[in-house]
Design a protein around this nucleic acid. Structure first.
Lengths: 247, 247
DNA sequence: GCTGCCAAGTGATACCAATCACATGAAGTC
DNA sequence: GACTTCATGTGATTGGTATCACTTGGCAGC
């Protein structure tokens, strides 16, 4: 473990410039960033690797530099449960900053990822002196609660197709914040696999596939290569999500 | 509306002593409590009344003095979704302290309640000067995220009886923190109605009833009057929750 | 005591999605 | 190019829950 860390550190030093790419850390003074950079380590993980472990008190917060992460948990009977996605520039494992509790969920790499681990203790010190950081962390937590609430509401939908469409709809709205798209056309870049969607919605993978089949047959969505899903008929998707239209 | 508030204020003045009963506010100096008390109002609500509205930016945080509240939301098709309970001494609607977003979920009175509303603006000022308050709020949010994560995991269970038993199990552990009980015997005071449990677990009310029937037939739980549910066989409940035993 | 209301209990039925067991297709590796 | 591995596609079967339509029972108010 230590060897691994030293190796990483050696070959991929964490620079203050790199840290300042993260919105949370950007406002910090240069010397502080220098200090943090020295205490931080950069690590790479393969697809499907566990980046943070549930049930243990992790000693660092994980900042995502490249790739995509997902918070996942497992039910007692071993079933996988998808919680949320983490995109580059964002971070996870921040609950430990506020209490001494254990990491609640696993963080798994959906793609090969590059992350920066910053020790919790160092960040706690930063929090003491920089109210702005505390503020942003508070906002982040609040946003997470809101998002979880929305997701929970989604799970209340009795109609499974509607659940899938709702999830797609919320992916469209969160992902493609770029507003140069025409209203009727949008895209989801690096769309989750059917399996990833399934565990977020408490449905089986096959069911997700079948919903996608129908959506494609009706030309509402369309694959554009492996890394992109085109939404041809945005308003149809919205109607499906809202339940005012059936598949 | 204004008249109502004046009425409440007139007949039930908020005293600093009353505010200091809340753990979050207890550490604050007396003069600050005085000030807050003057800006706060006490209100009563009947059972089933909406205490905080979803979708609007509420201008106050709601401290629960008496009774029990539940965070609820509604799916697009009008189905009720239960999110969490609020017990006396606790508060809700605190997300607005961190961002300017709208209240995410409704807060509904499960019993007649007495609450104290403290303006968000006043609390924000308090947060600026008293790091301890920020700290506690952070912990509270973190705890909420953990609890929501657990609840979400619960929903992943394919077996509905298990879901119900898990929920009961977590009610036992959170509610009856009083440790003078023998290990094999516990009780849930003011247990939620079947309907309230049902909407938290995404199951129908009838299904909850049927699970309770089985639990009662097997003498695992037992009603003790309207305000209490006895758990006769705690370990059996645990096994059922963990899936190592079937109903 | 009567009435009304709401929580809880119960059976019959229908249907929808999970599951299983494959087939196919695409991407990366040696 | 052969091979592995993973994502996706598809049909048949089945069981579990929602739903509906009631009944019962307890509590409160008049």
């Amino acid at each position: 473990m230590l060897a691994q860390r030293l190796w990483d550190q050696k070959f991929m030093a964490v620079t203050p410039e790199l840290l300042s790419r993260f919105p949370l850390l950007k406002p910090l003074p240069t010397d502080l960033l220098n200090q943090l950079a020295q205490q931080s380590i950069m690590r790479k993980f393969a697809r499907r690797a566990i980046v943070l472990n549930a049930g243990v008190a992790e000693d660092s917060v994980c900042f995502l530099f490249e790739g995509r992460l997902q918070g996942v948990d497992f039910t007692i009977d071993g079933r996988e449960v998808g919680l949320y996605f983490v995109e580059p520039g964002d971070f996870c494992g921040e609950l430990g900053l506020f209490d001494e509790g254990k990491q609640a969920e696993y963080i798994m790499a959906l793609t090969p990822v590059v992350v920066v681990n910053i020790p919790i203790e160092s960040l706690r010190e930063v929090m003491l002196r920089h109210a702005g950081v505390v503020n942003q962390l508070g906002r982040k937590l609040a946003a997470r609660v809101r998002q979880m609430t929305e997701q929970r509401t989604l799970l209340g939908l009795p109609n499974v197709s509607q659940r899938v469409c709702c999830q797609l709809w919320s992916l469209v709205n969160s992902g493609a914040a770029s507003s140069e798209m025409p209203m009727s056309l949008a895209a989801i870049s690096n769309p989750p696999t059917h399996q990833e969607i399934a565990i977020m919605l408490n449905v089986s993978r096959e069911t997700v596939t079948r919903v996608f089949q129908k959506l494609q047959n009706q030309k509402i969505v369309q694959r554009a290569g492996p890394g992109s899903l085109l939404i041809n008929d945005l308003s149809a998707l919205q109607q499906l999500a809202e339940g005012s239209r059936e598949l």
